[in-house]
Design a protein around this nucleic acid. Structure first.
Length: 909
RNA sequence: GGGCGCGUAGCUCAGCGGGAGAGCGCUCGCUUCACACGCGAGAGGUCGCUGGUUCGAAACCAGCCGUGCCCACCA
């Protein structure tokens, strides 16, 4: 041990690049991340990672969410290993895997093929699929490696893939079951057609862009001898070739007479019935609308209501079809638009043109403009699935954090629409649907039937694959072996929390809840945590295409994984936040500070140890240091011998602060308040432990031994080691690498910190019989003065805490201000002292318990009493007639709801 | 159009009923034997605007302005 500590002498900095790979190795070899499936999900803790795309590379969102989940996982793993409980250790598992990402992956491989001068059509489906699998073998694990660099403690030994064999079985079973239950069906429907990928894509993959186009007003003549015309407005004149009606609002007096007559479609000459439909807005344009059921979703619905013909003039390749007429067939949509306008102008039919700004749909994936088209697709009916998923959230079986997203979820679910689940791709789960080549009979089955059950004819499997989100929706249970009742499923399903960004709340989260309930009868997770979105430093969205992305891996390279984790967690406060390199820097500084504080203590303590003495009174037979090292944790803490001498106020103070920060950090992590958890650690380590406590205590460790007894030095060494160990252990979920490294010196064994137990706040260290009294505080001041004088430091401020006229306790800072006004040197300090300065001019109040007053108050009264006091206050306010009469309705209502809230909280305590 | 955020020091953000704060940046001074990824001392703010509630508002309420995100079928 001494040798190892000596080597610290020269490591004056924490070097992530040197430490991280070494630590990662140890973790991976330890098997700590791979729990055996035992016990029930209620006893265990699990998180299913949002599976990154195999095409993906770690971006800021992954890094943040990775850090968040890892904090939860590590924190809970450390809870689970708490040796103080008699129960068998619970298991903690972070379920890992990747998503096959249909469109994105296919696009990647197609790009590669193109570079080789070929195409998927050319090589055929089978060869193409082989190519994609090869691609996946090569590149598909990159992102997993990147998660390792982040320090993410996933179960790397059981990596799943949304397209592996077992997973496919789950997907097929779900499809077949839902088909048999009548929820999956085939229909002609207008879909968002992406000409780029030649596939239908979901509403959720459509991105609207604001563009300025021309709004044309076009005159259509009426059929009949009496002349007359209607004027319609459109930004897409090319679609008029597919018009099959003209519509007006039924309430529109102006056009009563027109309904039932016919208009003539210019250029084509088709007869268009004039119909009345509520959809038409009377005040837009002329209030006369052209209806193109085949190329506009709204018109499609109007068409359904009025049984209109559907004329498709745009094909799946994004070009005009023969239905558009010889003149236009084969043109691209934009070419056709110009040609149609020109033709109409020749006929003098354009009666108005104005610039018009509107939203134009683009494919999220291919970037091409969406063409709404009619095609034959597979759909899933959602209303029946949605109902239980709505109840799960309203009754609290699934808790959405922060809860303002609840309403968004519920609103969306209440208005849910059928889901188009088929995609015209080659990469994905091919639908388990088989068509008879002879009689067209449709078979849906888990395994391919040999012949048509009706006519015995040849069968051919559906070409389409399922929307990627179909398989993702099964993630939390399909990864654990469902539909088999595996031990994994039993031990880890349902999972505890799903952490994700809010943009896939519907795309993914809602669907997992629906599928989980339908197929397992249980919610897939009890909490949904919606994390912050990190924007680029300039406030724009971080995106590769905008060039605003910041690569987290580069940041890790530069500052270390701990620093990046700390920074991201510290940033994750509100809904959107800008990336702040400074927070990462702050994290780096903290890692280094912690490292050096530990180094200092270890080197000093080693000296103390060498002097060897130690007395039985302190900590058993040998010196405090040795005994502390060898003792397992709980005993060490409960060993009263490490309690400080009553007069050592600063010891009592740091120990009580330690207990407080432990309680706070644990509570913050449990509350998903990661930024305060991280920043709280920073404040403690910097502001209290290093700036203040270590500075105060230095002279007591001085090796010349002039000012302190050997006994005190031993005792102090024990306290220092204790504080340091707990601080390091407590910081581990946020900064796993430095802390693991330090644990190899502090841990007293070969145990990894990742597998150790989380320190729990322990009030036994705050001995009620040894409260810091006024007299003792004075002694503390004497001590501090002595130290200050000995190092020649400037006089600090030493002031009393006091109550103001109203009886409120003043805060530390207000005391500071008072002190600054009234005192200029320590010599003027009043005799009764309960507050002391810390470097930098900030004051920390030492109460009679040696703590800050609020914390002391909390401990004294307890949570229940605090709530009761709060409730009493609010009740009194509501009982005040003047208040109720004069305050705005909303204020009173606010107080009432606050009261209700507090009462509920009290009930929960 | 609806919903949800955010506007506090030059920058990024805490604070959310009684003191205007942190990190970074800036100025000055430190080879103080854990740490220059450090230590000490400073400068810097009508807490977006207007009203209201209150003994007291950066914080609570209303309205406005600015800004960002999500959802939505207005041709």
């Amino acid at each position: 041990m001494p040798n190892r500590i000596e080597e610290l002498e020269h490591r004056t900095r924490f070097e992530p690049a040197e430490v991280e790979p070494r630590i990662t190795q140890r973790w991976l070899q330890s098997g700590l991340f791979h729990p055996e499936p035992q016990g029930s999900a209620a006893e265990n803790y699990s998180i299913a990672i949002p599976p990154p795309n195999i095409t993906g590379s770690l971006h800021m969102g992954h890094a943040l969410n990775g850090a968040i989940q890892d904090v939860l996982i590590r924190f809970n793993r450390m809870q689970a290993r708490d040796g103080t409980t008699a129960q068998p250790a619970a298991r903690t598992k972070w379920i890992l895997g990747t998503d096959h990402a249909g469109i994105a992956t296919q696009a990647q491989v197609e790009k590669a093929l193109k570079a080789e001068g070929t195409s998927r059509q050319e090589i055929g489906r089978e060869a193409f699929e082989r190519r994609v699998w090869e691609w996946r073998e090569h590149y598909g694990h990159r992102i997993i490696e990147q998660f390792k660099r982040l320090g993410a403690s996933c179960d790397y030994e059981e990596e799943r893939f949304t397209l592996d064999d077992g997973y496919h079985r789950a997907v097929v079973k779900v499809f077949v079951d839902l088909y048999e239950q009548g929820l999956i069906y085939r229909d002609r429907y207008i879909v968002n057609w992406d000409p780029g990928s030649r596939s239908a894509i979901s509403d959720l993959e459509v991105e609207e862009r604001r563009e300025t186009d021309t709004l044309y007003s076009i005159r259509y003549d009426l059929d009949g001898a009496d002349g007359g015309s209607v004027t319609i407005a459109t930004v897409r004149p090319e679609t008029m070739l597919g018009d099959t009606a003209v519509a007006v609002n039924p309430q529109d007096q102006r056009y009563r007479e027109l309904v039932g007559r016919m208009a003539l479609l210019p250029l084509i000459g088709r007869h268009l019935p004039i119909i009345a439909d509520e959809y038409v807005k009377r005040d837009f344009g002329t209030g006369q609308l052209k209806v193109t059921p085949a190329h506009d979703p709204n018109d499609f619905e109007i068409g359904q209501r009025h049984e209109l013909e559907q004329v498709s003039v745009i094909g799946e390749d994004g070009r005009m079809t023969s239905e558009a007429g010889e003149r236009f067939a084969g043109l691209t949509v934009m070419q056709a638009r110009a040609a149609v306008v020109e033709a109409l102008k020749e006929e003098g039919r354009i009666v108005g043109e104005e610039p018009y700004e509107h939203e134009v749909p683009y494919s999220h994936r291919s970037g091409e403009r969406i063409e709404p088209l009619i095609s034959l697709q597979w759909f899933m009916r959602m209303d029946e699935l949605a109902q239980p998923a709505i109840e799960a959230v309203t009754c609290g079986a699934v808790r959405i954090v922060p809860d303002n997203h609840r309403r968004v979820y519920l609103d969306w679910m209440a208005n849910i629409r059928p889901w188009c689940i088929s995609r015209q791709l080659w990469w994905g789960h091919r639908l388990p649907v088989y068509y008879c080549q002879t009689c067209n009979h449709v078979h849906v089955a888990t395994s391919a039937p040999e012949h048509c059950e009706k006519c015995g004819g040849e069968l051919r499997q559906e070409e389409d694959v399922l929307d990627t989100w179909f398989s993702s929706a099964l993630w939390p249970f399909a990864t654990l072996g469902w539909p088999d009742e595996t031990p994994q499923l039993q031990a880890f399903y349902p999972t505890n929390v799903l952490s994700t960004a809010r943009d896939i709340l519907f795309l993914w989260v809602a669907r997992m809840i629906m599928m989980g309930l339908r197929f397992t009868g249980q919610v897939p997770f009890s909490d949904v945590y919606i994390h912050t979105v990190i924007q680029a430093p300039d406030g724009r969205r971080m995106s590769k295409s905008l060039g605003t992305g910041i690569d987290p891996l580069e940041e890790i390279e530069r500052h270390g994984a701990d620093a990046v984790r700390f920074g991201l967690l510290a940033m994750s406060s509100s809904q959107d936040v800008r990336y702040s390199a400074e927070k990462v820097q702050q994290g780096q500084a903290l890692a280094n500070k912690l490292f050096n504080a530990a180094r200092f203590v270890l080197l000093k303590v080693a000296e103390v140890d060498v002097t060897g003495a130690g007395s039985g009174e302190i900590a058993g037979e040998s010196g405090a240091v040795e005994s502390l090292r060898s003792l397992p944790r709980p005993e060490a803490v409960e060993d009263r011998s490490i309690l400080p001498r009553p007069e050592a106020v600063e010891d009592r103070w740091i120990l009580s602060r330690l207990e407080q920060i432990e309680a706070d950090t644990a509570a913050r992590i449990a509350d998903y308040d990661f930024s305060h958890a991280a920043l709280g650690l920073y404040d403690f380590v910097y502001g209290e432990l290093c700036d203040w406590y270590l500075e105060l205590v230095k002279h007591r460790l001085a090796s010349d031994g002039s000012s302190t007894s050997e006994q005190d030095r031993n005792r102090l060494a024990a306290i220092l080691l204790h504080v340091l160990r707990e601080t390091v252990a407590m910081s581990h979920p946020v900064m796993p690498f430095v802390t693991e490294e330090l644990w190899s010196y502090l841990g007293g064994g070969n145990e990894l910190l990742a597998g150790a137990s989380y320190p729990c706040a322990d009030n036994s260290l705050i001995d009620p019989e040894a409260e810091v009294s006024m007299e003792r505080a004075i002694e503390a001041i004497t001590l501090i003065r002595g130290w200050r004088d000995s190092v020649g430091a400037r006089p600090g401020l030493i002031v009393p805490a006091r109550l103001n006229a109203k009886g409120y306790e003043t805060t530390a800072a207000s005391v500071a201000r008072l002190a600054r006004l009234e005192l200029t040197s320590a010599a003027d300090a009043p005799a009764a002292v309960v507050a002391v300065p810390v470097p930098g001019g900030v004051l920390e109040v030492l109460s009679e318990e040696g703590l800050d007053l609020q914390a002391a108050e909390r401990r004294r009264t307890g949570e229940r009493e605090r709530l009761e006091a709060e409730i009493e206050r609010v009740r009194a306010k509501l009982a005040n007639e003047r208040f109720v009469a004069k305050a705005p309705e909303a204020v009173v209502a606010g107080e009432r709801s606050k009261l209700a809230h507090l009462e509920a909280e009290l009930g929960a305590v």
